[in-house]
Nucleic acid binder design. Structure first.
Length: 508
RNA sequence: GACUUGGUAGCUCAGCUGGUUAGAGCAUCUCACUUUUAAUGAGAGGGUCCUGGGUUCGAGUCCCAGCCAGGUCACCA
C-alpha cells in the first residue's frame, strides 16, 4: 500500500496539497478507492453531445472536474473531457436517494476538489437560463488530484482571468498547460492534421514511409554541429543525426522510387525562438523527377495542408492574407537580388560581390566565398520580402554540395527554397547523382573544414560508393515541420509547437 | 555566445526614496444557500520575497556572484 502520510512529511507541501492529501485519506476511510482500476464506459463527449443536444437523454461521461459552484443542496460543476466542457447539475437527493447523504454532503462537497477525475451517469436537460446540462444520478471518483490546477477563469465577455501564462511553467509542466489553456491543445491538433495530410498525400502517391538511423557513425546530409555519444559495446563514437538525406538517397539507389521520412534531427547549436536542439524535418525523394516537378508537388501539397488546418487556401496569418492556392511565383535568386538590390550577381566576381555587400551595409569577412556572399545578399535584403508563397530557384553551386549543377546555367544548381511570410519553409533540389562530382564537392567541404569551418560536411565514403552503383535522377525536398506548424498556427515561438521543448533541468 | 528584462501566496500581480507584523483578486478552509455559470453573502488561514554573500541600526527594495526563464542580436533549420 502506498503510504500517503509519508507524502506529507517527505516533501514541503502547500496548504492546499495537505488538505487534499487529508481528503484522500478520508475517502479511503469511507471505503472509496481514489484510484480505481475499473473501466468506466463513456457514452458521450462534451462537444458532440452539445452539437446534437436533446433533453432527457441518459448519458455517462468522464473527465476532470474543472470548477464547482455549490449552493447548499444543489451544485453545478464543470466537467472537462477531450472535446471540451459540459455542465453538471449535482443535486443531493438525486445522487443520494436514501437516508444517507454522505456522497453529496461529504464526498462531493468536501472531499472532491477541482482537478479530480470523475465519472457521471445522468440525464440531459436545459437549465432555466438554457445551459445544456446533465442532471447527475450517479457519481464516481475516477482519480484524485493532490495538486491544485491554476484557477483560470473566463468571464462572460471572454476575458481570461488569472491565466496560467508564465512560459517557463507552461513548458515545464505542459500537462498543466494543456489542462487549463484550451488553445494550446488546438495548436497540437493542428500539428497532427498537418502531418497526417502530408502522410496521406504521400501514401496515396505510393511513396514509402521509412525509418533510417538516428545513430550515425558519420553525421551527414547537412552542415551543422552534431551531438556526440558513445556506443559502449562497439567502443566507438556515434552521432545523433543532423539529417537523413544521405540514407534516403541510398534507398533510391536500392530501387525504391519514392521514399519519405519524418526525421527527428538533432543539432548541437544555440536555442532560441526558432531553434530547438531536436526538431522535425520531412524529407521526400522521388526518382526520375527534377526540381521543377517538385515545385508543383509542393504547391499542391501546401494547398492541401492549408485546407486541412483552416478549411481553405486563403488564410490570414499574423495579420496578412496568405494565398496558398497553387501555382506559386517562381523567381531565380539572381532576379530576386537584382530586383531588390540592383546588384547583378552574374556580372560580379567574389571581390565585386564583397564590394556590393559593403555598399548595402552587409558585414563580410574574408572567409566568405562567392556563394556565401550571394546568400548574404539574399538573406539580408530579399528573403523577408517574399510574403506570398514564392519559390526562389537556382542557388550558387558552392552553397549546395549535394545538388546537381544547373542543366544550362554554369555556377548554379537546380535548387529551390520556398518562402512564405518571409521565412523558408522548404528546400529542394535535383539531387546530385554524379559520384565523381559528389566526391569533389565533399573534398571542397573538407577544405572548408581544414580552414576552420566546424560545420563543413564529413566525407561519407559509403554514400559515395552507393552513388557509384548508380542513382536515378531524383528530386528531393526537406520541409521544416516545426516551422510550418508555427506559420500555419500563428505561433512565433518553436516552443509553442513542441509539446516538450528542451529546457534546462529543474531543481527539485 | 553577447546584451537586456524579470523571478514576491496554489495562479495572476502590487509593493514608491531602504523604515512597524509583506498586500490584492482568484483559489483554499468554515458557515449559509435546491437551476448557478468569473454564482453569491459572512468569516478565517496561507509567504524559503529564486539562491548565496555584502552594505546598513534596518534589505522584498541597494551592491556583488550564481541559478532559471523571457526578449533582442549573432549562428543555424
Amino acid at each position: 500500500m502506498p503510504r500517503y502520510e509519508l507524502y506529507l512529511c517527505d516533501m514541503i507541501r502547500s496548504e492546499q496539497e495537505q488538505i487534499r492529501l487529508a481528503s484522500l485519506q478520508q475517502l479511503k476511510d469511507l471505503g472509496i478507492n481514489p484510484y480505481p482500476a475499473d473501466e468506466f464506459t463513456v457514452s458521450h463527449r462534451s462537444a458532440s453531445l452539445r452539437e446534437d443536444f436533446k433533453e432527457g437523454v441518459e448519458v455517462t461521461m468522464a473527465g476532470r472536474m474543472m470548477s464547482r459552484r455549490i449552493m447548499g443542496k444543489a451544485s453545478f460543476a464543470e466537467l472537462k473531457d477531450a472535446e471540451g466542457s459540459f455542465q453538471l447539475y449535482v443535486n443531493r437527493d438525486e445522487i443520494c436517494s436514501g437516508e444517507d447523504k454522505t456522497l453529496y454532503n461529504t464526498v462531493f462537497k468536501k472531499l472532491l476538489d477541482r482537478g479530480d477525475f470523475i465519472g457521471v451517469r445522468g440525464v440531459t436537460f436545459l437549465t432555466k437560463v438554457g445551459e445544456p446540462s446533465i442532471k447527475v444520478l450517479e457519481l464516481t471518483l475516477l482519480s484524485k488530484a493532490i495538486r491544485p490546477l491554476p484557477a483560470v477563469k473566463t468571464d462572460e465577455d471572454g476575458n481570461v482571468h488569472d491565466a496560467f501564462s508564465d512560459p517557463e511553467l507552461r513548458y515545464r509542466m505542459r500537462y498543466v498547460d494543456l489542462c487549463v489553456n484550451d488553445k494550446v491543445k488546438d495548436t497540437f491538433i493542428a500539428r497532427s492534421k498537418i502531418i497526417r495530410t502530408i502522410r496521406e498525400t504521400f501514401d496515396n502517391k505510393g511513396w514509402l514511409e521509412v525509418d533510417t538511423p538516428v545513430l550515425q557513425a558519420i553525421p551527414g546530409g547537412a552542415a551543422a554541429r552534431p551531438f556526440e555519444t558513445h556506443h559502449n559495446a562497439l567502443d566507438m563514437p556515434l552521432y545523433l543525426r543532423i539529417a537523413n538525406e544521405l540514407y534516403l538517397k541510398r534507398l533510391i539507389v536500392g530501387g525504391f522510387e519514392g521514399v519519405y521520412e519524418f526525421s527527428r534531427n538533432f543539432r548541437n547549436e544555440g536555442m532560441d525562438r526558432t531553434h530547438n536542439p531536436e526538431f522535425t524535418v520531412l524529407e521526400l525523394y522521388v526518382a526520375y523527377k527534377d526540381y521543377n516537378w517538385m515545385m508543383e508537388a509542393m504547391e499542391n501539397l501546401l494547398g492541401d495542408v492549408a485546407k486541412s488546418v483552416h478549411g481553405k487556401t486563403l488564410v490570414n496569418l499574423a495579420g496578412t492574407d496568405i494565398d496558398f492556392t497553387p501555382p506559386y511565383a517562381r523567381v531565380t535568386m539572381r532576379d530576386a537580388i537584382l530586383e531588390h538590390t540592383k546588384v547583378d550577381i552574374d556580372t560580379l566576381d567574389e571581390n565585386g560581390l564583397r564590394e556590393a555587400c559593403k555598399g548595402l551595409g552587409i558585414d563580410t569577412d574574408p572567409s566568405m566565398g562567392r556563394g556565401k556572399l550571394i546568400d548574404e545578399l539574399f538573406g539580408e535584403k530579399c528573403e523577408h520580402l517574399y510574403v506570398q508563397p514564392t519559390f526562389i530557384t537556382d542557388y550558387p553551386v558552392d552553397m549546395s554540395p549535394l545538388t546537381k549543377t544547373h542543366r544550362d546555367k554554369p555556377g548554379y544548381t537546380e535548387r529551390f527554397e520556398l518562402f512564405i511570410n518571409g521565412t523558408e519553409i522548404a528546400n529542394a533540389y535535383s539531387e546530385l547523382n554524379d559520384p565523381i562530382d559528389q566526391r569533389e564537392r565533399f573534398e571542397s567541404q573538407l577544405e572548408l573544414a581544414e580552414r576552420g569551418d566546424d560545420e563543413a560536411m564529413f566525407i561519407d565514403q559509403d554514400f559515395l560508393r552507393a552513388l557509384e552503383y548508380g542513382m536515378p535522377p531524383t528530386s528531393g525536398v526537406g520541409i521544416g515541420i516545426d516551422r510550418l506548424v508555427m506559420m500555419l498556427t500563428n505561433q512565433t515561438s518553436i516552443q509553442e509547437v513542441l509539446l516538450f521543448p528542451q529546457m534546462r533541468p529543474e531543481q527539485f
